[in-house]
Write a protein that binds this DNA or RNA. Structure first.
Lengths: 134, 134
DNA sequence: TAATATAGGACTGTTAAAGTCTGATTTATG
DNA sequence: CATAAATCAGACTTTAACAGTCCTATATTA
């Protein structure tokens, strides 16, 4: 319950690894997967998403791989989750779309109350950066 | 991702409903389910768990039902989650058991870093009570 | 041109969450 | 004392999200 997904975990592990080495250093998905015993294919997809959103830079071809494209202080956990999961971390679906999206409609009584929880959660994830998990 | 389960939502809705009425008032699972359009069977199970842990008192038989057994200020969201899910809200499995439980074993690099996130999350859930969602 | 890397889509398997069904027990009340 | 209405409890089924795999295309270096 309330756990980060494996994909996010894999992403965090990879980003952390990169953040600990000299900026600009290139790593292949293969070596990262091996180092931390993560499924190669899955990690590859995660890195591709991070690349598409400019968090890492990708180099194709033989001596290719990935390198951090942003400073570790600039990448928040919140951003990583949004990029990898394609959604924000939410305590209830209520908050995913407009007001009409709540399955309880008029009778939803926890929307407002949980908003407080949600906002606090947002602060947590928005505040924590890759720098802090090194 | 990172959402509260339906069971927890149902539990929160039910507890909130009770907390808004005079202390000691009895409600049946049936009426609560109807009022908020929740699946009766599921809500019933949730209430039974809350009863077993003394959060609500249950009265069997014809005019039976449930009533709050603790003051709304005494029941934290954290407790509700632990009772209903039978586990704590965790950002990674790492934290569920002893040190050996991490699937990355020696190579887990996010355990310590995520601990910070975990602690902050704990504070959130430990601090928020039923009183605050009324 | 061969080897090695990313890119990306389709697919399958697995698991946890969500929901349902059945029957037993308790108790107020007509 | 029989009945109806409620909790209690466990087994079961369904569903959907997550995790993981597979295949092929494209890019790039040597």
């Amino acid at each position: 319950m309330l756990q980060l997904s494996k994909k996010v975990e894999y992403g965090l592990i990879a980003l952390r690894h990169m953040a600990m080495k000299p900026m600009g250093q290139v790593f292949t998905a293969k070596e990262l997967a091996k180092e931390y015993d993560m499924p190669y294919d899955l990690l590859a997809k995660v890195l591709q998403k991070l690349a598409r959103h400019g968090i890492v830079a990708s180099l194709q071809g033989v001596r290719g791989g990935y390198a951090l494209a942003k400073k570790p202080t600039e990448v928040t956990v919140s951003l990583i989750i949004r990029v990898i999961e394609e959604e924000r971390p939410m305590v209830a679906e209520c908050y995913t779309d407009g007001p009409a999206s709540c399955y309880l409609f008029g009778n939803c009584t926890i929307r407002k109350p949980l908003g407080k929880l949600q906002r606090n959660l947002n602060v947590l994830f928005d505040t924590m950066t890759v720098q802090e998990i090194v």
